[in-house]
């Protein structure tokens, strides 16, 4: 209740003190985060504009459906839920570090900062796996010239269009050049030596692929990859810089810099940045994976 009394007696705008009752650094951190929110907002809204302007958009549940160690099992949302929970958990350890800072408990701040750093690194590792999985993926897509090809998901290629009927795929196989037939056949038989496939005739390869009962898609909207890698990359870069800031804060805590200063406000400011990263992920998760 003493704070309420203080608020009533104070002339906020008469100078000499912060009218927001916050230090310059903290207020500026808030304004930086607000401007950053507009940057992310602009990216996500531009993604929304392009998505709304297309008749077909790639179904995220088909693209993001794998989990490390589970091979080709269809597990939509599973891996990204793990990433989301890692980030929520690291947000909690961050707020607990701030809490220990208020109590001037150096040991507590150290421990929770360490946990936050580990959470951040875990999140980045998950993202690295996800990107690698997409960039090295092999998906059969029908190109505009009517032939089939094996494509990864990149900023220039999107093999996630609408599925083509089986007959259309068989017709497309007839116009597909031999090197692409070999690529397609090798996605079916990973363990089979590819030099054997290269020696096979077109007819043999087509028969082999037709018998395998594989699916092929049209190519999807090109913008998908650019927006996905652009926005998750920009977010990942924020996480990376957040981890670096947290490591610096951890070292400074360890060296008793904040104890000597008499307050742990730097932990609060680093915490604001870290929570913002979590906040942005809420919307990246919403726009790219959920809807």
């Amino acid at each position: 209740m003493s704070t309420v009394a203080a608020q009533h007696e104070t002339k906020w705008w008469s100078g000499g003190r912060s009218p927001f009752n916050a230090s310059y650094g903290k207020v500026m951190m808030w304004y930086f985060l607000m401007s950053d929110a507009f940057t992310f907002g602009a990216f996500l809204i531009s993604y929304g504009t392009i998505r709304f302007s297309q008749n077909f958009w790639t179904d995220p549940n088909k693209v993001f459906n794998s989990f490390p160690g589970f091979g080709h099992m269809d597990l939509p949302l599973a891996f990204v839920s793990l990433m989301t929970f890692i980030l929520i958990a690291s947000s909690v350890t961050m707020v607990l570090a701030v809490h220990e800072g208020h109590k001037m408990n150096k040991k507590g701040v150290e421990n929770y900062m360490l946990l936050t750093i580990i959470g951040g690194i875990a999140f980045l590792s998950c993202q690295a796996w996800e990107w690698t999985h997409l960039l090295t993926g092999e998906h059969i897509a029908l190109l505009n010239d009517g032939s089939l090809s094996v494509l990864p998901t990149t900023t220039r290629m999107n093999p996630w269009g609408a599925e083509i009927p089986h007959e259309a795929m068989l017709a497309a196989l007839k116009t597909t050049p031999q090197d692409q037939l070999v690529n397609i056949a090798s996605t079916i038989h990973h363990e089979g030596a590819s030099h054997n496939l290269a020696e096979m005739s077109n007819t043999q390869l087509v028969d082999m692929i037709s018998a395998a009962g594989i699916h092929a898609n049209h190519t999807g909207p090109i913008a998908f990859g650019g927006y996905f890698f652009g926005i998750t990359g920009f977010h990942g870069f924020h996480v990376l810089s957040g981890v670096v800031i947290n490591i610096i804060m951890y070292i400074k805590t360890k060296l008793s810099h904040f104890e000597q200063r008499g307050h742990y406000e730097m932990i609060e400011k680093a915490g604001l940045y870290w929570h913002f990263v979590d906040l942005v992920w809420v919307f990246v998760f919403l726009c790219f994976y959920l809807i």
Partner: peptide
């Protein structure tokens, strides 16, 4: 207030 005050601009610190 008797709580830690982080800078001279700050009038009162939030109670932990």
């Amino acid at each position: 207030s008797e709580h830690m005050v982080t800078s001279p601009e700050v009038t009162f610190a939030h109670a932990p």
